[in-house]
């Protein structure tokens, strides 16, 4: 049973890990919505140092608003970006209606 479902709001964490991490800096600390659950995959941070990376970790595609990523984003307000994030880099986020 995966921790998140499509539509769930999530925050991308900054685990501060060195090495072969697949979460680029520009999405860390940002909040988005789960687009889909991709399945579970061996942890690339472990695979990179020749460990098995098991048990496999749930992988999600997270959709973020471009204007949340870049405060001066020049495109349309509805422009988005989607990126894959492993479960351990995610935390549940509050509903945006509670934010304001």
């Amino acid at each position: 049973m995966s921790r998140f479902a499509p539509g769930d709001r999530v925050q991308i964490l900054d685990l501060g890990k060195p090495g072969h991490v697949r979460i680029p800096w520009y999405v860390r600390h940002k909040t988005g919505v789960v687009e889909r659950h991709c399945g579970a995959y061996p942890n690339p941070e472990e695979l990179a140092v020749a460990r098995p990376g098991l048990p496999a970790i749930d992988l999600y595609r997270v959709r973020l608003d471009q204007r949340d990523l870049w405060p001066d984003y020049a495109g349309a307000a509805e422009d988005t970006l989607e990126i894959e994030v492993y479960d351990h880099w995610l935390a549940p986020a509050a509903d945006p209606s509670a934010k304001d």
Partner: peptide
Amino acid sequence: PDSVRVRVHDSNADM
């Protein structure tokens, strides 16, 4: 045009 939304996919992991 701005009426067409742009969606970027950062292919960073297993897809």
